[in-house]
Design a protein around this nucleic acid. Structure first.
Length: 444
DNA sequence: GTAGCCTTGATC
DNA sequence: GATCAAGGCTAC
């Protein structure tokens, strides 16, 4: 394989986003963070953060808070043990093979991406570089002018959120090839389907749940179109932060979840009051399930696939967020890993959605009996389906229920985080997320 | 204290 | 001998 050193150097420093100069103390970093890390460790420096130990570190602000800079160095994986106690110069350390593996991996990823995008990746698809732009890693997350189409194999992004802006978009980023993604979708959609449209071995109720499920590509187009249509209306004076964009994205996903529920079997039979109570009780579970199922069904390892079809390196996100969100992402990743190992399919995810929605534990339900009965039917259908598809008898079913419990814990933590961000005025106004959050609080 | 460039030396 | 990741030097 031809070795291309530039592939590794294209990425920004994981600490500050500056130009990488090589592997230093365990990973690719820039020269200044290398020097900073060395000075700190060699001289056993102790820093104090003047604020809340969550200072943003980028190229322009890295000098402001050495405490947070050093914390970030450690967080992204710089290794203390790579700083030599004896100060011996030259030579290699024990990380040599690790650097080699990392290089090979990056090279492999680059080639895979080049192939997936039909050799169009002349400029690197590094959303990570865009993440370094501002405190809330703005940019690169709104689909630009080019929406994925069958003709366009490459999804472009621009820095500039305003098409008429005089500032030229400095870089185009590429994302997952649309055709590659579509192939994955098609494969997933057709799993087990017979030519008549019924599915062999799949209980009729599960088939009905699957029929209610929104089409992923339609959802992607809808959310992307909405974000592009409304981007000029947000924070006219400034670019919206990435967190704010994520909120808009989540809002749109939530709207699609409500639409899904309203048009679904059983739910349509409920009184509006009960419908509201059920949705208010589980909106965050469903939102998180939507995100997680997307990773399991269509995502790639180490990346976060957004509802718009864009992908972000998880390592990049983790290195740009505070400890609370980083821990949430970590747990989410672990859950995706668990579901990935047991290869949960669309049928099972469809059942889980109904299982979450029809929660008889919700208080003051008029149609409590009906909801309890639906929950039993869903459980029965899921159990039947897992028994048909898995040889592990009850193990798979029990495993899925355990994952649902973990998902509920995570969504509750995510709600707390959202609440905190809302109190810090970082969530956009008129957010459906906040409306749901408040509805739940008042109702609880 | 920072950060860019230089020197060193084990490994390939 | 080339490479490259350590530590060192020094202008700012």
């Amino acid at each position: 394989m031809e070795y291309r050193p530039d592939v590794c150097m294209e990425e920004g420093c994981p600490v500050c986003g500056d130009k990488v100069s090589g592997y230093h103390y365990g990973l690719l970093t820039c020269e200044s963070c290398k020097g900073f890390f060395k000075r700190t460790v060699q001289n056993n420096k102790k820093y104090i953060c003047a604020e809340y130990q969550e200072c943003w570190i980028d190229k322009s602000q890295r000098k402001r808070c050495p405490f947070c800079r050093f914390q970030k160095c450690l967080h992204v994986g710089m290794r203390l043990e790579a700083v030599r106690a004896d100060r011996m110069r030259g030579g290699r350390n024990k990380f040599g093979p690790m650097y080699k593996r990392d290089r090979a991996l990056k090279q492999q990823r680059h080639l895979a991406l080049t192939e997936a995008t039909g050799g169009l990746s002349c400029s690197p698809p590094l959303v990570s570089s865009a993440l370094h732009r501002d405190l809330a890693f703005t940019g690169g997350l709104l689909p630009g002018i080019t929406l994925p189409t069958a003709q366009s194999d490459c999804i472009s992004y621009q820095y500039s959120l305003h098409p008429n802006s005089s500032t030229p978009a400095p870089t185009h980023y590429q994302c997952t090839s649309f055709s590659d993604w579509a192939i994955k979708l098609e494969r997933s959609n057709n799993c087990g389907a017979s030519s008549e449209g019924s599915v062999v071995g799949v209980p009729p109720l599960v088939q009905e749940f699957l029929r209610c499920d929104p089409d992923e590509l339609q959802l992607q187009r809808k959310v992307s179109a909405h974000l592009m249509e409304h981007q000029t209306g947000w924070e006219d004076h400034d670019n919206p932060s990435t967190f704010s964009l994520m909120c808009h994205m989540a809002d749109q996903t939530l709207i699609s979840i409500v639409e899904w529920a309203r048009s679904s079997i059983f739910f349509k039979q409920l009184k509006v009051g009960d419908q509201m109570k059920l949705l208010q009780s589980c909106w965050s579970d469903l939102l998180l399930l939507d995100l997680i199922s997307r990773q399991v069904l269509y995502g790639r390892e180490g990346r976060l696939l957004l509802v718009t079809g864009q992908e972000i390196e998880l390592a990049d996100i983790a290195s740009h967020v505070g400890p609370t969100l980083a821990s949430l992402i970590q747990r989410g990743q672990e859950l995706v890993g668990k579901l990935d190992i047991i290869k949960v399919d669309r049928q099972e995810f469809a059942c889980i959605k109904f299982l979450i929605l029809f929660n008889p534990d919700v208080k003051e339900l008029d149609g409590h009996q009906l909801i309890e009965s639906v929950q039993e039917q869903v459980e029965g259908a899921l159990l039947e389906y897992t028994l048909v598809t898995s040889s592990h008898l009850l193990g798979r079913f029990a495993g899925l229920l355990l994952c649902v419990s973990e998902l509920r814990v995570l969504s509750s933590l995510a709600e707390e985080y959202l609440c905190y961000k809302h109190l810090s005025a970082e969530v956009p106004c008129n957010s459906l997320l906040i409306e749901m959050l408040y509805a739940k609080c008042n109702w609880d």
